[in-house]
Computed example of a mutant assay.
Amino acid sequence: MYRVLLPVDTNEDRALAQADYVSSLPDATESIEVYLLFVFTEDSEDLPREFEKFKSASRISSVRRAQEAIENAGIDVTILEDSGDTEGDILEEAETYDVDAIVLGGRKRSPVGKAIFGSTTQGVILKSDRPVVVTGGGKE
């Protein structure tokens, strides 16, 4: 089995672009297993207040939409959730599940924005010893 880690955030278009990429891989239904990861962070302002009490990745619409797309393609998917440092959690889960590749959803950021705020994608690419694929941001 070819194992793929698919970390998603709250953006549904990005999550669907990642799911579409995985679904398009050769022989995906027979040979790919997906670990869909959502990391809850302290400063996650995109989440409604009601999630503070019942934090569960399966309640996040981007996670549900990506899961549906992957399952509709006939691919096995496991939902993972974590909390803390997104970049560190992605690398840790990749190691824990011994994935063969990490599929990230890219977003448009200016060079200044990357320098000031940092970039999870850039950090994962530089620190991972596994192949990292960055998909487009969908309809962004």
Rank of each mutant, 00 (worst) to 15 (best):
P7S: 11
P7F: 04
P7R: 05
V8W: 00
D9T: 10
T10G: 07
E12W: 00
E12T: 13
E12Q: 13
R14V: 11
L16S: 05
A17T: 06
A17L: 05
Q18D: 04
Q18E: 13
D20T: 11
Y21E: 01
Y21H: 12
Y21K: 03
V22C: 06
S24R: 10
S24F: 03
P26L: 03
D27H: 06
A28S: 14
A28W: 05
E30G: 14
S31R: 15
S31F: 08
I32T: 15
I32S: 14
E33Y: 08
Y35Q: 03
L36R: 00
L37K: 00
V39R: 07
V39Q: 08
V39E: 06
T41H: 05
T41A: 10
E42W: 10
E42L: 12
E42V: 12
E42I: 09
D43E: 14
D43M: 07
S44D: 14
E45S: 04
D46M: 00
D46A: 06
D46N: 08
L47K: 05
P48H: 10
R49S: 13
R49G: 07
E50P: 11
E50K: 12
E50G: 07
F54G: 01
K55Q: 11
K55M: 09
A57W: 06
A57V: 09
A57I: 10
S58L: 15
R59C: 09
I60K: 04
S62R: 01
S62H: 01
R64C: 00
R65K: 14
R65M: 05
Q67V: 00
E68D: 09
E68M: 02
E71G: 09
N72I: 01
N72R: 14
A73S: 15
A73Q: 10
I75T: 09
D76R: 12
D76E: 12
D76C: 00
V77S: 07
V77I: 13
I79C: 02
I79T: 12
D82A: 13
D82H: 00
D82G: 12
G84K: 01
D85A: 11
T86Y: 04
T86H: 07
T86N: 10
A94N: 08
A94R: 05
A94Q: 08
E95Q: 12
E95C: 04
E95T: 13
V99C: 05
V99F: 02
V99S: 03
V99G: 02
D100C: 06
D100S: 11
A101K: 10
G105S: 04
G106R: 10
G106Q: 07
R107A: 10
R107L: 09
R109G: 03
R109C: 04
